[in-house]
């Protein structure tokens, strides 16, 4: 088991954003995480990447408790992530955005090696033509791809992708989906959070549905989407 969230709870004031939830991710697994607005998906991603500290329960990587550890420790343990709204180094070039993590995390990398690796990632993401531009000059979809690329520069074992399809131009949607599928095939474990049910459903083999901070369904996509609890959570009936 690569990552496990065991009975994790996160409260904001009187609200339990994540409530005694357990989720495991195996090596190489592609998991879709869906749920209505406010169901706690992003909070769970924040807990699994160290951005938030759980009020109860544990997050473990390779069985080792990561409780109270800072996000950079999660990154060094092989967890890469993206945000709903990309958080890039906006005044750095696209290439520098990719080189920085390689130099920051892998001190043994020379700048030449980091650049070589960055160019490989740019080619994979079809972003080579914008390498010299400042990150803030990219379109929304390109920024999402760049953020994915920045996570890949860490050579992570687990990718937590928070709404990678949100706000992306329809022309780029397929490209984002293809890249995620390709990463999954090459052995990355991926947790994919999104509202775009069709996109998620077509990509994943396991779908987890959250509502009110809890898991209400976990299994094969078609099976899960037929679940009465899931229909109720989405339709309110």
């Amino acid at each position: 088991m690569l990552l496990s969230a065991e009975s994790v709870t996160k409260r904001f004031g009187g609200i339990r954003a994540v409530d005694d939830l357990t989720l495991t991710v195996e090596k190489g697994e592609l998991v879709g995480l869906i749920g209505p607005n406010g169901s706690g998906k992003t909070t769970l991603i924040n807990l699994m990447s160290g951005a938030l500290v759980p009020d109860g329960g544990h997050v473990r990587i390779d069985g080792i408790s990561m409780s109270g550890k800072a996000p950079h420790v999660f990154a060094r343990s092989g967890v890469g992530r993206t945000f709903q709204i990309p958080r890039l180094f906006r005044r750095m070039s696209v290439l520098e955005n990719l080189i920085t993590p390689a130099l920051a995390l892998k001190r043994t990398y020379s700048r030449v090696e980091a650049e070589h690796k960055a160019h490989q990632v740019l080619a994979f993401l079809r972003l080579t033509h914008v390498a010299a531009l400042e990150a803030r000059a990219l379109s929304g979809g390109q920024q999402k791809l760049l953020e994915l690329g920045r996570a890949l520069m860490l050579e992570p074992r687990l990718l937590l992708l928070d709404e990678p399809f949100a706000g992306v131009h329809p022309k780029l949607l397929d490209q984002v989906a293809e890249r995620i599928e390709e990463l999954s095939r090459t052995g990355y474990a991926i947790v994919l959070v999104d509202h775009n049910l069709d996109a998620v459903r077509g990509l994943v083999r396991r779908l987890v549905v959250m509502a009110r901070g809890r898991t209400i369904a976990d299994g094969a996509p078609d099976e899960v989407l037929r679940s009465v609890d899931v229909i109720e959570a989405y339709t309110g009936r």
Partner: peptide
């Protein structure tokens, strides 16, 4: 230097710096 680049990264976006393994503190 990688340390200089890490300082620049933290100055531009702390959250982004943290998730690429930079110890902001």
């Amino acid at each position: 230097t990688s340390l200089g680049q890490a300082l620049d990264a933290v100055s531009q976006n702390r959250d982004a710096a943290a998730i690429i393994g930079i110890d902001a503190k």
